[in-house]
Nucleic acid binder design. Structure first.
Lengths: 130, 130, 130, 130
DNA sequence: GTGGTCTAGACCACG
DNA sequence: GTGGTCTAGACCACA
């Protein structure tokens, strides 16, 4: 289920955060559902429990999961909405990124192809998942 | 000419690299032109010379500038082309970024607005600069 | 009668303690009255008996209930008085909490509104309950 | 400057967070100012650096400080405003706390005395600090 | 020197 | 069993 790249410069705990967020968006993890315990995931991924804990704390702080001592961690009811709004806030970053590409002489048409491709990919995966 | 945000999470050397690359793309620095020496820039920006050196080494490795011992650093002839190709290689990253936004329920229309806005901004600045 | 939020960060045993104390203060449970047995309550709330036991032990230690072996648990005669005095001891905590708000620039007027609102709420509920 | 109660049930990292927030509100730490480094504070308080790090991460996430790798941690410009808004959000908690006291038979007058005392204390300290 | 990440191993309260 | 805190000690990139 999880895939960790230990050699990536992206911290392990961040990789876990992103993957769980992705699972929520793809519907693999649904609101109310329990996620793997800190210890079990640490064993499954051969990663120190503290690292998992840090990832879960981050998700808790963002309102994606709810950590309940003695019981476990559960996906928040409004986790998908939280994620959508969080991503919407990154549209300005996207604009700046595209500006840099435009400045470098990348044609608008090439960017538009990326947009088409991205939405085509999502649609394809969505159909496969349904 | 340079603007460094000391409190940014982005490493200072990276800020310098990006700004010089930007100067090349906007035509503010032309191929063959000499850039400030490590020492003079370190004084101008009140920054450790090692940091400037690291930025210049990075630019040298990317083929943007060429260090000529005893004379200084100069913008490579094909620097603009190198940069364009480098950015083109990031189109796949862009596609993945857009995929994530799409997955989070961001409408295609919102992305397209970003694209339009980015190209409009570039055009505007380009006219102002000419 | 009881309402337990399993996903709350507040320990379940503490939720039970607070609710029984509240029942005593609102008159829903009167001195001398018997409260549900550990076993029956554990079944009713689908909660581990040990958890109920811990709540009852806490109430016993505070002088709110008295466990009579073989007969059950009963509300102490002076439970309401005990609770009032216990709460009065928390007035210093309240002062410190308000100090923090004041320090943060919250206007005295805003605090006074909270006081008014709180007493209005209690009055309203009291009338409804009577 | 700092005072840590190792025997408190309040986590050490949280005590540090609260004290720094308090220093910001009292003006002891001003926006833009650098706070003690993780290592120096860990030595001063005889506390593990990781614990300090956790406190600083929390403050960074809340927008109170800005951690800059290689440079240090600095109080954010709008830290006081952030704190005030954060505290204002706790007014509903305060109302509920007062409700509980009211229900227990605490006279409104006693609560009002707390309010007066709290604001008197703040005023007094403010004058002393000026 | 700075902050940040990770591991190993311990202890706690809660259920 | 669960999550949460803390320590000790290591390593990294950045300045």
């Amino acid at each position: 289920m999880f895939h960790i790249d230990a050699l990536s410069r992206k911290p392990i705990y961040e990789q876990i955060v992103e993957q769980i967020e992705r699972f929520v968006l793809t519907g693999l993890l649904k609101p109310g559902e329990q996620i793997p315990s800190v210890r079990s995931l640490s064993i499954e991924l051969s990663i120190n429990p503290n690292t998992i804990q840090k990832a879960y704390s981050e998700l808790d702080a963002r309102g994606i999961i709810r950590s309940v001592p003695g019981k476990g961690c559960f996906i928040c009811e409004n986790a998908p909405a939280v994620l959508t709004e969080h991503k919407r806030g990154k549209l300005s970053d996207l604009t700046r990124t595209i500006e840099e590409l435009a400045l470098a002489g990348i044609e608008k048409k090439e960017i538009e192809e990326c947009v088409e491709k991205a939405y085509a990919n999502i649609l394809r995966k969505g159909e496969a998942g349904e």
